[in-house]
Design a protein around this nucleic acid. Structure first.
Lengths: 110, 110
DNA sequence: GCTATCCTCAACCATATGGTTGAGGATTCT
DNA sequence: AGAATCCTCAACCATATGGTTGAGGATAGC
């Protein structure tokens, strides 16, 4: 999980995940549109691999990358836990404002 | 969003978010259990602030930090989009294995 | 067999990051 | 007023990170 957030911290890596979600791609295909050398892209892919997000199978001389989205689950769970906190803030704010100017007003406005 | 993933890449910062989810805390309170100088903690908090996850209000000489979980929403949404991809993989795998060795066998083994 | 293609690896470089210390601003306490 | 407390800022340092190039391994194509 530690490594998942770390891997996703870089926009380039999130882009790779996005592209791989569509279909498996070779390293070259991934690197092509990425204003970066092949070796540079390869490094990013390796970071994703270490995070368990990408598996790479060798097909002849081509290295095919596929997404393994499963490790995203733990990060997602972590975030979702705190989602509980942000609506509460809104609720608290609403309660605060509602208290000042009749809560019924609010219900009626729906 | 870019900055949210970046801010959460560091375990120390995720810990801070966790603690602040319980209650607002001063910089000193946050730093206390954190094997790190006050200035060091302050830096981490500043990163979280830049990501919009923490707001800091000055109360006399004490700087109180409160969590603002709202920016987590975008990161959470990003992850949840890809959650669609990982169950499909499991389904595909199950179908693959199931086809090879009778799905009923698998159910019975539960 | 020779050459081109796809990719990784190692070395290298510049910059970012995570930490420290020391100085000092602003409050609070006595 | 003077001292202690809480915190930020700036300078500094070591290491991590993100990129490059060049060399070379393995495969594919001629």
């Amino acid at each position: 999980m530690d490594t998942v957030f770390h891997a996703l911290a870089h926009g380039t890596r999130r882009e790779i995940v996005g592209r791989l979600a569509e279909r498996a791609m070779t390293v070259g295909e991934l690197a092509a549109p990425m204003a970066m050398s092949l070796a540079g892209a390869s490094k990013h892919i390796k970071v994703l691999e270490r995070a368990g997000l990408v598996r790479q199978t060798v097909d002849g001389r081509r290295h095919v990358c596929h997404l393994d989205a499963a490790p995203l689950a733990s990060a997602s769970a972590w975030l979702q836990f705190y989602e509980r906190h942000w609506p509460r803030r809104l609720d608290a704010l609403e309660a605060l404002l509602g208290g000042e100017q009749t809560p019924r007003e609010e219900k009626r406005s729906r």
